[in-house]
Structure formats: C-alpha cells, structure tokens
Design a protein around this nucleic acid. Structure first.
Lengths: 293, 293
DNA sequence: TATATGCTTTGCGTCCTTGCACGATACCAT
DNA sequence: ATGGTATCGTGCAAGGACGCAAAGCATATA
C-alpha cells in the first residue's frame, strides 16, 4: 500500500481545508469532478475512508485527519522550499531583506544605502525584529544578531567580530551632573538600562552590576536612547553612534562589547545577492572595529 | 512560482537517487520519456536548472539538491503516514507488534499468548529492544517502557503503575552463604548488578549504594539473571518471577519499584487492535500490583 | 580508429485523465 | 409549499500525458 501519487494528497488536503469538494476545486483551479476522482482513487488505493460524505460537504475521518495533517506538513515544507528557490535564482536584483535588532539598524542602514547605490536593480529592505526571523521560510535573506552565537540548524552563521560599545549621555545631563572620569564616579550618576533580570548583552550585565541609581528601565532599546537624549541618565550605545544629542562619556571597553553574528540560510549564502550583502556588511563592521582602536 | 504538481517532485527525487533518468524510470515504473518530461516541466515552471545533463546521467545542481532534500523529507513523512494508516485500518487481526525491554518480556509474553487465544486472527510479535522503537514509523504498535516517563511528541503514554521488584538468589548460593534476613546482612553477600555508573532504575541505584561485594557486572539484564541462577550472588528481578532456579530473598519494597509506561502513537491508540492489547496489559499489571500487597 | 554500450532526446499513436454538462439531493428563505 | 442555492455524483467527448521505438550523442573498450 502506498499513497502515491502525491498530487492526490494535495487535493485531499485542500478538501480538508475547504470542507467541500467545490471549494477545493476552486482553490486548486481544477474541475470538482477531478477532485472527487482523486479522493475516490486515494481511498480505493488505501482501502480507508478518508472523508464522510455529508450533504453539506466532506468531513474528515480519523484516517483522513492523519493523512491531511501529514500533507499539510509536507505543503509547508514545499512552501519554504519554493521561497528559497525563488531567492536563489535571482541575481543582484529584486528584494534583499535584512533583519536585525533595533540597536544595529543605524549601522546597517548606510550599508544598505551603499548597496542600493551600487546596484540600481536592488531594492533593500530592513526589518527590525527582536526575534530571529525564520530564514528557512524566506522571511529574510540575512539576519544580523547580537549576543550568543545562533544555533539554528541549516543556518550558516559567520562572526562579525565585537561591536565596540561606549557610554553616552546627553550634554544637558553632563552639564547638570558633571562628567564622570573614573569607574568609581559612576556610583553618583543615574543610568538608563534594561529591566532587572533581562540583561543579556555584556554591557547590560556590566551595568546591572555597577549601576547604583537607575533613572529609567525599559524593555525597548529605542526608548532607552530617547531617555538618554532626554537627560535621564548615562547609557550604552554603539561607539559608532553619531548624534548631536549624545556625547561619548567613556570610550569602548572590551568587556562591554557585544559579539555580532551574520546568519544566512545554507542554501542562500552562496547566491550572488547575499554574497554582495555579506561582504559589504563585513567590510563595514571591520571598519568600525578599526576606528575604535 | 509554485512547485506543483507534487508528483514531479517525486520523480525528481528518484532521479537524484538513481543518478540517471533510466534508473529513476525503472524505480517509478514509468517510461524514461515521462521522467524527462517531468524534470523539464519542473525546471520550466521554476525557472531554475535542477540537474546538469551529463553524458552518464543527471547530476544535481545546488537548487536541485535543495529541492530533492525537501522531497526526501516529505517522502519520509509520507512513508510514516502510510505505515500508520496501514495499522489503523486493520481490526483485531493481523500483526500486533509490541516492544519492550528484556526485563519485562517474561511478564508480557503470557498476555500476548492470551490475546492470541482470544483472537485467532491475531498474530502477536514481541520485539525486545533497549531503545524506544520509532512508533511513528510503524515499527511497533505498542511499547512498554520502564523508568522515566517517555516524552516523545505524538506518543500517548499511560502509566502502568509500579512494577514490584524483589531480591532473588539461587538456592545453591543461599545454601552456601546463608539467607540474609536484614538489610545489614547484605553487606556480607555478593551481588550481581549493572556496571557502575549505568544504574538507571531505582533498584539499580539502591544496589549501587548498598552493595559491598560485587560478584559480577553486566550491561545485559538476561546475563545478570543467568549469573544469579549460577549462584554468583543476589540480584533484583520482578517479584512475579516464577523459577525453580531462583528464590525470593527479600519481598518487594516501594523504593525498589520501577515505574512502568505504556506508550502508543496518538493515531493508533484508539484502534481496536491496540485497545485490546492495552486493556489486557493494564489488567495484567494491575493484577501483579495486587499480588504483591 | 572502429565498435559497443550506455544514456538522452524526439516524433507518433494510444490511453488515461480531465473538463463539461446534466442530474440528483439537501437545505434555506420567501 | 416552492423556488433558489448550495452541494455531490456520473456519462460523454476532448486534450494532454504516457508508452513505444528509432535516432542522436558521448564515453569507454578493443
């Protein structure tokens, strides 16, 4: 007993989804007679009733549920596959989707801008998300992550080195509270940082240990930057940050640095488009590391 | 872009496996020309070359590898499905495959025997394996496990209660070394048990802590029983053990008992055949627990 | 160099699958 | 009650996919 041909599984899945033969036929773009014949053929070959013929449509039996569950998983797998193939076949043109965390988008943005200038056919897209995008689903070509080395299977992760992180504050704040010179001076200052217990990055953990007075907690990094600009306290930011509203209070230190990772899907990381993006990003981050020396 | 119809994926998979169109055609039971047409159609629809036409056959491209990998996973999933459906559709007849660990087969065997007597059409099969059989692959209908509660997804696990475990020895051994009366007496006796550090079951751990003189180590439970019969020392066995060669030295104790679990696949545990087996096994083990009170 | 042996490719006739149309049935609203 | 609107089921004709056989091609062997 075998459940070939696979096409009939697909129609069975659509019948299960639609609940009616006609609906499934419409979605599949075939005649409803064809759908009936597929289901009948499948049931005959399997010797099991997959659907209960109801006046209002087809209802799944236990066996039918099993089969369509399996078919649904296969369909999802094939969809992923199609998305990846779609990406693979394109040259340096069309969409290029990069995802990263909020902290890094200021650094990534110029790279994408340059990439677009060099390749007029390329339209870059920068998605900012905390979670790691499902690269195997084709949600993104590239992901830029900070922190622990990502371990997803089928993803190739390349080290981007450490991101220099420095301590910043608003000029108004420094005018009011003075410029801290040594680590000991920090005890007298307010800081803005992540919520207690949520420190993940090295600099956040450092802050958690050294901060005495907290001006503001937030789960959102952008909010923290805004709080720093508003003069609520000292805070960490990438050393490359260029802003009139914030000045560097202390230079980058190795134990503050966050490890950066460039992660792509195995099947995509050799495609020309992704290659172009990775080399550009690598160059940019190498330059950042040099600057901070 | 879509990779329907699914049948063409299946032929592509076979071409990748066989390496030649002719070989794939033979495996699929279709003509060479059909295979070629499927591949060509797939490539046209996808716009990607899946195979490099070599004089000696078809070689996978990068895209082809991706696609056939996905197809292979789907095929494996469908195979599982077919196996489960095969099992589901049968009544209380045909094969009934039960797997368990060596320690328990003496207890399970009479149940299967009774089951066979009650259902002439049923031919039971008892597979003895240390590892948990892949129930989703249709390797077995039922698995009987001891120890920690199994956690496989898609498996329904039912508690069978605790298996009463007692301390046994060969009559010849007891004649030579005397009958231990108290726990303290055990210090003067030889024991046979599993290898150090491999104690998993409660009674094995207990033995590891209390045993002073070890007569024999073995990784194989059957060997341990043989060693007990040969008079190499005291050892644990299910309290239900009936044997002229071994006598019970100490009655079952709660802290020796091993938790038992009856595990089936979700899609199968409601089928009449599996139901018949589970009720019979449950009754048997409930009776065992009562006896030892 | 010639021969042989695989393979792929292509043209043609046939069979199977599909699409179409019509009929049957059940449910709902007027 | 009756017309309307869904649904599923089946006979018949057309088109597309299949199998067959011959041709083309490349590599290996004598």
């Amino acid at each position: 007993m075998s459940l070939e041909p696979w096409d009939e599984l697909r129609t069975a899945l659509q019948v299960a989804r639609a609940g009616t033969v006609s609906g499934a036929a419409q979605r599949l773009g075939v005649h409803h007679a064809t759908v009936i014949r597929h289901i009948d053929g499948l049931e005959d070959r399997l010797g099991v009733k997959l659907f209960q013929r109801h006046a209002k449509g087809y209802a799944l039996t236990e066996a039918g549920r099993m089969l369509t569950d399996g078919a649904a998983e296969a369909e999802a797998r094939f969809d992923k596959l199609a998305a990846r193939l779609d990406m693979l076949q394109s040259g340096i043109e069309g969409d290029l989707c990069v995802t990263t965390v909020p902290e890094l988008c200021d650094i990534v943005l110029p790279v994408l801008s340059q990439l677009r200038a060099d390749n007029p056919q390329l339209v870059p897209c920068l998605r900012v998300e905390e979670r790691l995008a499902r690269l195997e689903y084709g949600e993104a070509h590239l992901a830029l992550r900070a922190g622990a080395r990502p371990t997803e299977p089928d993803n190739v992760v390349q080290p981007l080195g450490a991101l220099p992180v420095a301590l910043f504050a608003a000029p108004a704040y420094l005018e009011r509270r003075g410029m801290p010179r040594t680590e000991a001076d920090l005890a007298d200052h307010d800081v803005v940082t992540v919520e207690p217990g949520h420190a993940r990055a090295p600099f956040d953990r450092w802050m958690e240990q050294h901060a005495r007075h907290v001006g503001l907690h937030s789960n959102d990094r952008t909010t923290l930057l805004a709080a720093m600009r508003a003069g609520l306290g000292l805070g960490f930011a990438p050393a490359s940050l260029q802003s009139d509203a914030l000045v560097q209070v202390m230079p980058p230190r190795p134990d503050w640095s966050a490890e950066l990772w460039l992660v792509t899907h195995v099947d995509l990381h050799r495609s020309p488009k992704v290659q172009a993006a990775t080399t550009a990003l690598k160059a940019r981050f190498a330059a950042l590391a040099d600057e901070s020396l």
